[in-house]
Design a protein around this nucleic acid. Structure first.
Length: 116
DNA sequence: GGTGTGACAACAA
DNA sequence: TTTGTTGCCACAC
């Protein structure tokens, strides 16, 4: 297992922990995954989703300002907003009010589940 | 090993 | 709020 593979695994696993009805930013995920400052790596990791078993709620990952990472007209963005709204997350004009929906992880629980 | 790239972040207008 | 610039760092060629 190379370090890069491990990084991706950590990212995916962290994303899986985002509770329903919440969202997180790329930077936040990178941080929690033990990769501070590597938000772009998170983007790459999500672009290479292993789409094997474990459903990964990639749509709960937004930019730091709450904006969806895709172009507003893209199908991806529409799919994402749809999925979010299914979880009672309000998406307006391609963005989410982070103040209301941003995930506030419980660190102790996080450490327990991730145990890096 | 150099170069370009990326589902980004932070900051400035 | 939106757009542009810069910094960032691992990865793929």
């Amino acid at each position: 297992m190379t370090k890069s593979e491990q990084s991706y695994q950590q990212i995916w696993q962290t994303v899986r922990l985002i509770p329903q009805g919440c969202v997180a930013s790329y930077g936040q995920i990178a941080d929690l995954a033990g990769l501070p400052g590597r938000a772009r790596l998170v983007g790459k990791a999500l672009g290479k989703l292993p789409d094997n078993q474990q459903p990964i709620p990639w749509y709960r990952v937004l930019r730091s300002n709450g904006q969806i990472a895709f172009d507003k007209h893209s199908e991806q963005a529409k799919t994402q907003t749809g999925l979010l709204q299914q979880e009672n997350v309000v998406v307006l004009n391609n963005r989410v009010k982070l103040k209301q929906f941003q995930w506030q992880p419980d660190l102790s629980e996080l450490l327990f589940k991730l145990s890096f």
